[in-house]
Design a protein around this nucleic acid. Structure first.
Lengths: 392, 392
DNA sequence: AGGCGAATTGAATCGACTG
DNA sequence: CCAGTCGATTCAATTCGCC
C-alpha cells in the first residue's frame, strides 16, 4: 500500500511539535493508517487548551460551558481534517476516547466524511473502581475505526483476527489489561511518566487487524510512543508527533530499544482473497480432474459432467462451476469451489480441496523461482536506523 | 422522587402519537427517569445474505429513514430538548444506540446541558455475525446514562447494583442475551412483531439501578412496551409514547398482561448491607427466578422471598441466599445454593440446579469482571470527580 | 418422553475485478 | 460508470422435527 510519496515522508521518526502544524507539512494521501489518542479535556476545569495552547477559562456558567465544548470541537475538527488529508483513499483511522470526548469525535468524523466501520470497546480487565459509589465502574474505553470514505476499499485482516480469537470472528468488544508493570514507562522517581499510556496489546491488535507490513502508520498524539514501538516491532513504518518534550524523548528512546520481529513472524494468516487465482479450467488442463468426470453437490442430488474447457454440463445447461451451481439451485450466486464435489473412494471432496492440492504442488515445483507476488524484497531489514530526529 | 405534578400526568398508559408532539403536552419537571430507544438511522445499501444464501431480515422500516445527518440531528435535538424539559432536576435519562447514531446523540446531549454519568456497553451474548468477513462482529450496543445537568443529585442504587454483580461494583459493560424465545412478541404468522425489541433483562437493570418504586418512567419510543412492562413489574409508574398503531396496541396488551411484583419484592437493598457472595442476582435479572418468588429449605419449614437485587427476605430479616440461610438456622455458615429450593410442579429444585441451567446459556467469559487484588473499595471519597477512572 | 441433529435467526451502514 | 463474472463468507441460542 505504501508507494511513491513515502520517500518524502519523515519515516520512522518521532516529530516534536503541535500535531496540526506538523501534519500540515506532510504530503496528502501518504499514510495508510492513523491511530490517535487525543486529549479529552472535557470536564477538567481550567485545563482545557485551545489549539493555540492558550488555556480556556473554566467557569461553570452555561455560556462558558458552551465555549468549552465549542473549543474542543474546533480542535477536533482541525486535527481530524488534516488527518483525513494525509490518509490514502483506502486508509483507515482509529481514534480512542472515553465518554467525555468520544461522542464529539464520532460526530465530527461523520461530518467530515469518514465512514465508521466499527466502534470497538476496550474492556479493561483491571479498571480503577468508582471510589464514591455514585456511578458504574468506568471499565472500558471506546475506539472508533473508520475508513476515509464510504467507498474506501479498506484493509481488514479478517483471517488474522479470526485466528487470534480461537477461530471465531473477532467481536467488537476486546478484553485487555491496562498498561502496567514493566511495560509502563516511569520517571526517575518510579512514577508513571504518562497518565494514559496505552497497552501494547491494544496496538498490536489494532495494527495486525488493519495494516500490512511496510504500511505507514501515523500517530498524531504519540505520547510515550506505544504506536511507534508496536509499528516497528511489527515491521510497519511509523510517524509519531508529540508536543511534550519529555514524552517525545521517552518515545524516541523506547522506539530505539525496540527490535523488529523476524519477517516471517509478522506475516499474518493470509486472506483467501489475496491468494493467486486458479481458474477451474487449469485444474482440468493439468489433469487434477479429468474431462468427463462427474461432480455433485454435497447431498448427491445434483450431478454434472466436467467438460474439457472447464465448464460443467448438466442436461441442457452448461456454465462455469459458479454459474451452473447458481442456475441449478435458483440462487443469485454460488461459490462453485465449495458447492461441487468429486467422489474419491466413496468420500466427497470439494473442488476447493483439489485446488489447494494443486497449489501445494505448484509451489513445490517453483521453489527455486523466488519472489512471492507483490512483495518486492527491497531490503527492509533496513528500518532506516534510528534517526528519530527531533523536529519542530 | 415523584411529587405533586405526577397526578396531572397520564400515568401507566401507552400514548399513541408522535413523541415530540405528545411530550409537548406534558408538564415540565414531571418525570424521574427516561429510557429512549430512538431510531438508529441505519443506512443499508442492499440486501444482505448469509453464506448459505438465506436473506437477513433487516431493519427497513420507514421510521428509520432520514434524508441525511442534519435531518437526524434536528430530529434528535427536538426530542431530547422536550425530554430535558420533562425531566425533574435530579432525574436521569438513558439513550441506547449503535455507532450509526450514538455519537450524534451523545454530542447533542452534551450540547443541551445534560451531564453524562456513564456510557454503558450492552455486550450481546448472541450477536449476528459479520457474514462477509469485512469488519469485526458488531457485538454490542451503547447506552448513555446522563443527568439533567451537572449539579443534579441523581439516583444511583449502588448497593443494589453491587448485590446484582457478585458483590463487586457493577461495571460499565453488561453481558446480556438478545430478546428471543417466548419473550419476543410475534404476529399471527410467527414473525417478529418489532425488529428491535429489547430484552427485559436490560430494562430490569436500568430501572433497578436508577429509579425507586413509584418513580415515573417515560419511554418516548415505546415500541412493544418493554420499558412499560418492566416498570409495571417493578412497581414504577410509566408513560409510553408510540407512533405506530400496531406497536402501541401490542404494548398495551403486553402491559395489561404484566403483574406487579409484591411490594416487598421490589424494595431493593438499602445502602450498607451485607452482600451475597455469589451472582445469584444474575439469575433474578434474567428471570430464571422471578423477584417475589418463594424459596424454601428442603424440609419446607423455612420460607423466603426473592428480591430484585438477588437478596432473600424472611420477615424482618434480609440477606444473601447464604447469609439468610445461616441466620435462620443459627448456623455459622450456609451454602445457599444447596440450602434453598424452588417448588417446580410440586418438586423441590435447589437453586444450584437453576444456576446450572443458566450457565448452560451463558458464556464463561462474563465472569471476568472481578475486582482486582489490592484495589479495595476503601472510602476514598475525596478523589476529584469521576475522572479518576480514566487512566490507562 | 427424551435425546439428538437440523433449521432458524438476530439494529448490518457486510465485494472485487475486468472489460 | 455499468454490466458481467468470479467467489469469499456465520455464531450463539433457541426451536423444530425425527426417532
Amino acid at each position: 500500500m505504501s508507494g511513491a510519496t513515502a520517500m518524502e515522508l519523515p519515516l520512522d521518526q518521532i516529530l516534536r511539535g503541535e500535531c496540526v502544524e506538523v501534519m500540515r507539512m506532510l504530503p496528502s494521501g501518504s499514510v495508510d493508517c492513523i491511530f490517535a489518542d487525543p486529549p479529552y479535556n472535557l470536564q477538567l476545569r481550567g485545563e482545557l487548551r485551545r489549539p493555540d495552547d492558550t488555556v480556556v477559562d473554566g467557569v461553570d456558567d452555561d455560556w462558558d460551558k458552551f465555549s468549552d465544548l465549542a473549543a474542543y470541537d474546533r480542535f477536533t475538527r482541525d486535527w481530524l481534517s488534516e488527518a483525513r488529508r494525509l490518509l490514502r483513499k483506502d486508509g483507515t483511522i482509529w481514534v480512542i476516547g472515553s465518554y467525555h470526548n468520544i461522542f464529539r469525535i464520532g460526530a465530527i468524523l461523520q461530518d467530515l466524511g469518514f465512514w465508521i466501520l466499527n466502534d470497538i470497546v476496550w474492556r479493561k480487565s483491571n479498571p480503577m473502581p468508582n471510589f464514591r459509589g455514585r456511578r458504574f465502574t468506568n471499565a472500558h474505553e471506546t475506539m472508533i475505526w473508520a475508513a476515509r470514505g464510504q467507498d474506501s476499499r479498506y484493509r481488514f485482516n479478517y483471517q488474522a483476527m479470526k485466528a487470534l480469537n480461537d477461530d471465531v470472528q473477532m467481536r467488537s468488544d476486546w478484553y485487555l489489561p491496562l498498561c502496567t508493570g514493566g511495560e509502563r514507562l516511569r520517571n526517575g522517581h518510579g512514577l508513571k511518566l504518562h497518565p494514559t499510556q496505552k497497552p501494547e496489546s491494544l496496538l498490536h491488535r489494532v495494527l495486525v487487524s488493519s495494516t500490512a507490513a511496510d504500511d505507514v502508520v501515523l500517530d498524531p498524539f504519540a505520547g510515550t510512543g506505544t504506536t511507534a514501538a508496536m509499528a516497528k516491532r511489527l515491521r510497519r513504518r511509523f510517524i509519531g508527533i508529540e508536543r511534550h518534550p519529555d514524552y517525545a524523548e521517552a518515545a524516541i528512546g523506547r522506539v530505539r530499544r525496540e527490535t523488529p520481529l523476524p519477517h516471517d513472524a509478522v506475516a499474518t494468516t493470509p486472506m483467501k482473497r489475496e491468494a493467486p487465482r486458479v481458474p477451474f479450467g487449469s485444474l482440468v488442463e493439468r489433469n487434477f480432474i479429468a474431462p468427463g468426470s462427474i461432480v455433485c453437490d454435497k447431498s448427491r442430488r445434483l450431478f454434472a459432467t466436467v467438460s474439457p474447457d472447464g465448464t460443467l454440463i448438466c442436461g441442457a445447461k452448461r456454465g462455469s462451476i459458479h454459474k451452473l451451481g447458481a442456475m441449478l439451485t435458483n440462487a443469485p450466486s454460488c461459490n462453485g469451489w465449495t458447492f461441487w464435489h468429486v467422489d474419491r473412494d466413496g468420500e466427497l471432496v470439494p473442488l476447493d480441496a483439489l485446488r489447494a492440492e494443486s497449489q501445494a504442488q505448484e509451489s513445490t515445483e517453483n521453489v527455486a523461482a523466488a519472489q512471492p507476488e507483490g512483495q518486492e524484497m527491497t531490503d527492509i531489514s533496513d528500518l532506516p536506523n534510528e534517526r528519530s530526529a527531533i523536529a519542530g
